[in-house]
Design a protein around this nucleic acid. Structure first.
Length: 202
DNA sequence: TTCAAGATTTCCT
DNA sequence: GGAAATCTTGAAA
């Protein structure tokens, strides 16, 4: 029996949380149906000092407001005028750090995910292998921005706080799409399960 | 008030 | 391999 992860699981620094989230189950309840996937790829964003983070320099806007909430909330943002991306807020309230969920291995509700992703997608590996792809597959949009993953009935994370993936099974690499961030672009803040078929494309 | 660029994906040449 | 899709934000004018 898997339980929902408690508040204490999320109230840690974003690197620790990014690694701890690997292998846990992200669950979305949409139209009375469970859509779920195992988290296989994440990226840590370190807040005011991190030039690649939306809260760099202490920026606080209507869009990134959720990043300032307590650990365990969802931060969903709209990018490039057409895509949504899901983050799990880490740390404590007023500490704007978060973990971007970049890829899932879909395990529940695959037919509904295929329907959401459209006719061009034919293989399970294409369903959730990318931050915007998984949001489309799980019907995650701005309406879920700021929801509390610890108490929400629509979006939450199941697993065990004690479950830890061995370091040998985790690959750390540079984050994707942040080339503009200077020194921060090269830091090994992206984590994924070694050799997993559902990570986002290279 | 205008403009450029972004934590992306898809489709076209 | 390159461009388009087109919302949000910060900086320039």
């Amino acid at each position: 029996m898997t339980a929902r992860l408690p508040r204490s699981f999320f109230r840690r620094d974003s690197v620790t949380l990014a690694r701890a989230l690997l292998g846990q189950r992200l669950v979305r309840v949409h139209r009375g149906q469970r859509l779920a996937g195992l988290i296989v790829e994440t990226e840590a964003y370190l807040g005011v000092e991190d030039r690649a983070a939306h809260t760099f320099g202490g920026r606080r806007t209507p869009r990134n407001a959720a990043m300032w909430l307590d650990g365990g909330h969802a931060y969903v943002y709209f990018i490039y005028g057409l895509h949504f991306c899901l983050n799990v807020v880490a740390g404590r309230a007023e500490e704007p750090i978060a973990v971007l969920i970049r890829a899932l291995e879909p395990v529940e509700g695959l037919p509904a995910m295929f329907e959401s992703r459209g006719p061009r997608v034919t293989r399970p590996e294409q369903l959730c292998s990318g931050p915007a792809r998984l949001c489309q597959a799980l019907a995650i949009d701005r309406a879920l921005d700021g929801v509390d993953l610890v108490t929400s009935q629509e979006l939450f994370i199941e697993g065990s706080p004690r479950h830890v993936v061995p370091d040998a099974d985790i690959v750390a690499s540079a984050r994707i799409g942040v080339a503009y961030a200077g020194d921060w672009a090269d830091k090994p803040l992206r984590f994924h399960l070694r050799g997993h078929a559902h990570v986002s494309r290279p």
